[in-house]
């Protein structure tokens, strides 16, 4: 892999609580703890994968970093600068360096705009006033993501899902960002198209020295693309380590269950399956102590009372579980 000493992004104690309004007066009656005290660091040039089931807060984490959703608490350091308190204009400038690719290539492109307008808009917003220059750059970007320059005059509905995701990627690349948050970029795509997009993203990373935060629920995809992986459960990070250790030697019982639940396209593989009982509890009313204790096969008394600390159990391997106290 690349040399990666310098952290590009540091997230410390990030929290995002959504209010639940209710009653005849619409008063606040509770909170959904979508992201509850999450911390991690992303090194320059690396791909950090974040996996978890629906509702675990992985997308909210991604959006809070960009302040597309305002975080409730915590700090986000981008290149050593705390960006949670900068004003709107400064944040707008910062977004030149931090971009996002969304899951649904059908919903994230304006159907009334041509590709040229879609990809050219971030250029205009960030000061490329000359229409000529923008046109040139859009064409260049389309070629970079594997489309053709003549696609620029078309509308989103004229493209297939994979091509639309390429447009989304071109838009994200427009201002030469340093960090791209990819929120389930391939979940809506077919297998044969998915591999095209994954390859493209890896090529672009090498070509432009990008850093990705890759959010997905598909464990095989995350394994393929990431250098390090964090596992989230009910708004909390439960394990974070490099790829091979996470898949080879998962420590947290949730990670173990999650990995064992993935159906693999190999009929010869005999594996011990850990079937978790029940559903993910509601984040509006998370269990006390360790959020996973209601479904954990190893739950102890302490798990019901004390929230386990997220700390290293060995070099570069963070786990939040009382089993490793």
């Amino acid at each position: 892999m690349k040399c990666m000493q310098k952290p590009i992004l540091e997230v410390n104690g990030l929290k995002k609580y959504f209010d639940i309004k209710g009653g005849p007066l619409g008063r606040k009656v509770g909170e959904v703890k979508a992201v509850d005290d999450v911390s991690f660091t992303v090194m320059e040039g690396e791909i950090l994968g974040i996996v978890g089931e629906s509702g675990c807060g992985k997308s909210t984490t991604g959006k809070s970093i960009l302040r597309l959703i305002e975080p409730t608490e915590g700090e986000v350091l981008f290149e050593d600068k705390d960006i949670t308190h900068v004003n709107g204009e400064q944040m707008r400038q910062l977004r030149k360096d931090m971009q996002i690719i969304f899951q649904d290539p059908y919903a994230s492109l304006n159907p009334r705009h041509t590709v040229e307008k879609i990809v050219g808009e971030p250029l205009l917003v960030h000061g490329m006033k000359s229409a000529e220059q923008r046109k040139e750059r859009v064409r260049e970007l389309l070629e970079v993501v594997g489309l053709s320059a003549y696609h620029a005059t078309r509308y989103p509905h004229q493209f297939s899902g994979g091509q639309r995701q390429r447009i989304g990627i071109a838009r994200a690349l427009a201002n030469n960002p340093k960090l791209i948050i990819c929120d389930e970029p391939v979940s809506a795509l077919d297998v044969s198209i998915q591999s095209q997009i994954l390859n493209l993203m890896e090529e672009l990373r090498n070509q432009f020295n990008l850093t990705y935060i890759f959010i997905a629920h598909d464990l095989s995809v995350v394994k393929h693309i990431s250098d390090r992986i964090g596992v989230m459960y009910l708004g909390r990070m439960v394990e974070l380590t490099d790829r091979d250790r996470l898949y080879g030697d998962p420590k947290h019982p949730y990670t173990q269950a999650l990995l064992s639940a993935v159906p693999l396209p190999d009929p010869d593989l005999q594996k011990e399956r850990i079937i978790l009982k029940g559903d993910v509890p509601s984040p509006a009313n998370p269990p006390s102590g360790c959020a996973f204790h209601t479904r954990c096969p190893h739950a102890m008394d302490i798990c019901r009372q004390v929230r386990p600390e997220f700390k290293p159990v060995e070099d570069n391997h963070f786990v939040a579980c009382h089993l490793y106290d």
Binding site: V191, S192, Q194, S195, Q196, L198, N199, E202, L219, S220, V221, K223, H224, I225, R243, Y247, L259, V262, L264, P265
Partner: peptide
């Protein structure tokens, strides 16, 4: 189709597509 799946137990540099 089978070659283009990312494998969980091995990692190839580039996915077949």
């Amino acid at each position: 189709l089978i070659k283009s799946l990312p494998k969980i137990h091995e990692r190839e540099q580039k996915l077949y597509s």
